[in-house]
Design a protein around this nucleic acid. Structure first.
Lengths: 361, 361
DNA sequence: AAATATATTGCAACCGATTACAAAATTGGT
DNA sequence: ACCAATTTTGTAATCGGTTGCAATATATTT
């Protein structure tokens, strides 16, 4: 066969492949075309050192010409590794959580991992269902921020049993086999409260969420400690533990506060969204913030810089937390780092003082 | 063998399986244990009608006892269907996009689909890379909101060629094989402008983004039409098309506006975040909003209700858009609906009038 | 040039579930 | 009890890439 003729023939066959949109191009097609074995093609495509560079070049070129796309499933099936990491979180559409996702996605993507995301919508049942799906999808590792309602982590047991790394962040659960990534909520709560007291607050109230969740429980502990250190008596009235994501519950709490015989002069709210709603309500009642009542939030959401007065809050580094969680998981998966050795990672958080808590201006 | 002995033996083997955490339980294990064929097990687990209900019961029970988990990859490989849908969007951590994700996730999850998410970070190159990954992962369908930079959709051609449904939302690209889901940006832009004019604005400025993107281009068209209809001359000075996601560029635009010989009295900004920054800058300059300058944003982000004055804006239903996009895709995948027949879906959007544009109070 | 070492390639058995088709078991009717 | 109709189960090929081991080709040494 003359070179030209041969070229034409190859071309024709290429066109055959391309036009026939029913069949996928596989390594077998490439192998046949090049008169080599599928094994070599597989190695060539994976840049295996034991393939002659010339052969490799031919393989890669033809693969490109034919528009070959590796079949992830066949590969995963055989390799028993999916290069996928799972992420289960309460809700996607909040500033904090979407920042976390962005951070995780960035790191995962750069490391060649695919990301599987699902939201529990704060329901334990859905969290369990999601976990099961993730397990079936054979994620290489799992990142979790627990649902509001979750009381135990039985539904994650299969991962633990199978040695699939499981990392909790934000809303964590203590477990000897799992790493937790958090900020020091205790310290943050303590600092917030100390700050309020240093600004002259005498009667403090803390509006918080489900105390089964570490984030809320720890902040409360910090709150209590600060009161104690300043010899301010603590009673149940100082804390309103509500379902902080439910606006009605929050409204009720606000009503409670407004109706208190002796109104508080410093309120520490466990998230910015709620703090902003509170401030708006106070302003409507002609109560001055910070003049009459100082308010501090938590998270450093964008709204905290928009509300007037600007809201004092705690910077909760979501994006960074996502990055750290993902990096940790991936390092562990790649054997760079042993995850068991690090049980808890604490990220830096900062009290950001703005007008809403500055009485001594 | 006596019943009891047999039971013990089975128990023992079950324990064997469970304790041996190296090997996965497969349908072969179940088949061997039950003395039936793997085919029957497969059918039994999938509730195939041609399996005796008694056998089915036994299979399901043992599967449960052994902690069997179907191997998605083997299944996908064979079925050539992944029950996965891909989602590519510019950035995850914005109110609009995270709402979309939440909507998509909800629908996808309820329909038994898994969600694969990746962000382009507004870069065409990364968008292409993500598309390739999605393609290799054999997503059954793809939802896309284009990157700021993307100029063509060559990188999605493989999907189109292979007949994988591709749906654009928000930032779309006209293509005969693809459905687009949008709001009527033209109408919205027109309404915003009409509203400003009705409130007495005479000199209008529109701060917007990359005009290659439909969302910005269409709103500008609406802006222009409204001017024309009100016999307000249009010139280039009326439009500041910048990289609206870059704060520096926005600051520059604001400086430009402040330096204008004749200051505008109505500004239409293409997103709320930027509108809020603008308002804060104006307030710092002692320019009254809406007294001196009226401002309207776009998206109805949470901050729009926090800024003072509250921001007039256009409600952009992200969650709903996500739901619609996902539902459409899934219906098409399930053959319930033909996607080709619907080329464009327009969601309702509303002008939400708040103080920032109300001069006639 | 023969012998040994090294670089490339091929063979064939996986990975685990699905499914067309064939075979066996059961049911029903006479 | 016998045969056909119907259920139920089994056989075996298939999806496409990976990898241990064997075989062949090339390079190096003596």
């Amino acid at each position: 066969m003359q070179p030209i003729t041969k070229l034409v023939a190859v071309q024709a066959r290429i066109m055959d492949f391309i036009s026939d949109n029913k069949k996928e191009i596989t390594i077998y097609d490439i192998a046949r075309e090049l008169n080599i074995s599928p094994a070599t093609v597989s190695r060539g495509l994976n840049d295996h050192p034991a393939v002659k560079s010339n052969t490799k070049k031919k393989i890669v070129q033809l693969a490109k010409d034919l528009g070959y796309q590796s079949n992830t499933f066949a590969s995963n099936l055989r390799k028993k590794r999916t290069n996928t990491i799972g992420l289960i979180l309460p809700t996607i559409n909040s500033n904090f959580h979407s920042s976390v996702i962005a951070g995780v996605e960035k790191v995962a993507n750069d490391a060649g991992y695919t990301l599987l995301i699902s939201q529990s919508l704060e329901a334990a049942g859905k969290e369990a269902a999601n976990a099961k799906t993730m397990f079936n999808s054979r994620v290489d590792g799992l990142l979790v921020s627990l649902a509001y309602e979750t009381n135990n982590i039985e539904h994650f047991q299969p991962f633990i049993n199978k040695g699939i790394p499981l990392i909790f962040y934000d809303r964590v659960f203590e477990h000897k086999n799992c790493t937790s990534i958090v900020i020091d909520n205790f310290k943050a709560g303590y600092e917030v409260t100390q700050h309020l007291i240093s600004q002259g607050a005498k009667k403090l109230v803390h509006i918080t969420g489900n105390l089964n969740r570490n984030v809320y429980a720890d902040r409360l502990k910090g709150f209590k400690l600060a009161l104690m250190e300043n010899e301010i008596p603590f009673s149940k009235d100082n804390v309103l533990a509500i379902n902080i994501n439910k606006e009605e519950d929050l409204q009720e709490a606000i009503t409670t506060i407004l109706g208190m015989p002796e109104r508080p002069d410093g309120i520490f709210v466990a998230n910015d969204t709620s703090a902003v709603i509170l401030i708006k309500a106070l302003k409507k009642e002609k109560i001055k913030v910070p003049g009459d009542i100082m308010v501090v939030g938590f998270n450093n959401d964008p709204i905290s810089k928009v509300i007037e007065p600007n809201l004092t809050t705690v910077n909760y580094p979501g994006y960074e937390m996502g990055e750290v969680a993902a990096r940790n998981l991936i390092n562990h998966l790649n054997g760079v780092m042993d995850i068991i050795s690090t049980n808890t990672i604490i990220l830096r958080s900062d009290l950001i003082i703005r007008e809403s808590s500055l009485r001594n201006l």
